[in-house]
Computed example of a mutant assay.
Amino acid sequence: MSLPIQLWLLVTISAVVADYTSYIPQLTGKSFQGRVTATTFILDKPQCLFSQDSTLTVWLIVANQTVQLDNTKLSQNAPYYLFPSSGYYRTLRTTADTYPCNNVADYIRVGNDASCSDPNNCNGPLPSSGPYRVKFVVLNSANVLLDQTGWSAPITLRQGKTSSVIDTWPGRRSGGMIVITSILSVLLATFLLCLIGTFIVGRKNIICCKKNENMETPVFEVPPALNIKDYKTHVVPGNPDLELYASPKA
């Protein structure tokens, strides 16, 4: 091979490598809901970057910011389940031709798989807030590293606050929260007053009923028996056939 051809190939390869390394993965600039969450983040999908060679494999490397990786580690298998100990993993395996050059906006959500069927290609949730760095690597069929992009800027995920560090002083509350809290407090106080009033009225009625039950029942005097004369029957002497007649008893 002549020297001019060798120089041309060297310049061509250098240009290709320069194109890869000059690409920096980044968070999407679109205002998506959940652009960055507690376990995921969204990247812009590379456009017009990789060759349309279906024999080349593209991986996304996700690593803690403090982890240093050489080309040997970048070409080795690094499953998601070893991430807590190794500090990095690779995921989203695909072929280079799945990154077409069509200038159509597309996105990649890192950490999107709650359960992974393939442990060696798992895009599982990120376990902490980070910060993380990511880069794309290109391997051939023999798992030899051919190309790689630059590292992204550090990406920090959102994390909820613990209850011990939340400021509960009213001065930190918005006007709407103060109004809602005041209304709820008044309603609760009104409900308690009604409940206490109902209890007092009900107790008073019970006491009144018991007093009525304990009152003596009025005794009605029975009028004396009427002085009615007693009549006895007599037979008329000498005439038994006559009917009886009554004569008053003195």
Rank of each mutant, 00 (worst) to 15 (best):
W151T: 08
K210H: 04
L192M: 03
P4Q: 12
E221I: 05
S247V: 06
L145I: 08
Q65T: 13
T217S: 14
A246R: 14
P79L: 04
G34Q: 10
F136M: 06
L82Y: 05
G171Q: 11
N64F: 00
T72G: 10
Q26T: 08
D147L: 12
V137M: 01
E221N: 15
P218S: 11
G176H: 05
S75R: 13
A250Y: 04
G171T: 07
D118I: 03
A105G: 08
D230I: 07
S129V: 04
C122A: 08
I196H: 06
Q52L: 01
P223Y: 03
G176E: 08
E216P: 13
Q159R: 15
N227R: 12
I42T: 15
L157C: 04
L69D: 05
V179K: 14
G29S: 13
A114P: 03
Q47D: 15
N205C: 01
Y99K: 12
K135D: 01
R173M: 09
S14P: 00
S54Y: 03
L145Q: 08
N212T: 10
N103Y: 07
T168N: 13
T40M: 01
Y88I: 06
K204A: 05
P25R: 02
Y99I: 02
L43W: 01
R173V: 02
W8V: 05
A38D: 14
L157D: 02
I180A: 14
I206V: 09
K30T: 13
R172Y: 00
E213L: 04
I196T: 13
V201E: 11
D70K: 08
K229E: 06
C122E: 11
L82M: 07
D106A: 15
R133Q: 15
P223S: 14
K211R: 15
V67R: 15
G197A: 08
R173P: 00
E221W: 02
L184K: 10
I5C: 10
A189R: 05
L146I: 11
K229L: 02
T95G: 05
D19N: 13
N77R: 09
D106G: 08
Y80V: 09
W59Y: 09
I13K: 09
T181G: 15
N77K: 09
F220P: 00
I207K: 15
A78D: 03
T198F: 06
P119A: 11
Q6G: 01
G176T: 10
L82A: 11
N239M: 05
F32Q: 00
T168K: 14
P218F: 01
F220N: 15
R133T: 08
P170V: 07
T156F: 00
V165L: 02
L226A: 14
I196R: 13
P119E: 08
